[in-house]
Nucleic acid binder design. Structure first.
Lengths: 145, 145
DNA sequence: CGGCATCCAAGTCGATACTG
DNA sequence: CAGTATCGACTTGGATGCCG
């Protein structure tokens, strides 16, 4: 658990954007899934969600926080750096470590989200077919313009 | 089944608008639920969804049709009106009876929707509490302006 | 009855630049 | 690192009026 998030997890080839089932705003569902395995820092979330501007990421997180689905915590920086860690020797102490984590309420959404994902997984081809058919009929209705 | 739809089913007291789980556009979920028990005519849908302008109702229905969730059918009007029914004696024959019905794909959404409704039913109070707390802290952060 | 056309207000989202 | 500020495009949805 708490492994680094897959950078390609939410690439634009992922057809999740065509399901009619949505959770909150455009990125809320993906954010929740990123927090599924434990707390994450802002910059950690930015890796899989690198197509999301920091403004939107902040905005979505604030919305989730407002609804009690996500909790934002600031940990005081350790003044005595007895555990610098390998490769982190050059960093000056940040003003505070900020983490986002799912609340129990946020976690309770994982069930419905799994159901939604299962539905999308099972039916996204039908959705694509229907849309292509609709586009085709719309085209044929046009007099070759 | 096929009883008339409850006019108050989707009144604004219904807190479904605060759940983060959405199906398609603003009214798609409600439309699907209205079609759950069988085909409905446009004017039938307008009763429980009377807060929805006809433009939006059409727009949502077109979207659902495009995605293969709803099918729109036009039946030829019966020229011989052997069944006028009580109280309907004054109606002149319409140009065609139009009905909207769920497709199997649309019907397959009822399961996830039930899950979403169960979640909302179970947690909407927590959502409200969180929002009120958030509003309160936002107010107290303001310097009594 | 079952829409469509038009206008307009509000919200959403993205790009870019800047900050403590 | 973790945001904030500003601008503008795009989308969504409501109000109103008209049509076959």
């Amino acid at each position: 658990m708490r492994e680094p998030l897959d950078p390609d997890m939410f690439d634009e080839l992922c057809p999740s954007s065509l399901t009619p089932i949505r959770f909150g705003d455009k990125w809320a569902g993906m954010i929740i899934r990123c927090l599924e395995d434990g707390p994450r820092r802002f910059s950690e979330l930015r890796v899989p969600l690198r197509r999301v501007t920091p403004k939107m990421l902040t905005q979505s997180l604030r919305g989730l926080e407002r609804d009690g689905l996500v909790r934002r915590t600031v940990q005081a920086p350790q003044t005595h750096t007895d555990e610098v860690g390998p490769g982190g020797a050059g960093g000056r102490p940040p003003s505070g470590r900020i983490e986002y984590a799912l609340t129990p309420l946020g976690r309770s959404l994982l069930g419905p989200m799994a159901v939604a994902c299962a539905w999308a997984d099972e039916h996204w081809e039908e959705l694509l077919d229907a849309r292509e058919s609709a586009a085709g009929t719309a085209e044929s209705a046009r007099p070759a313009g």
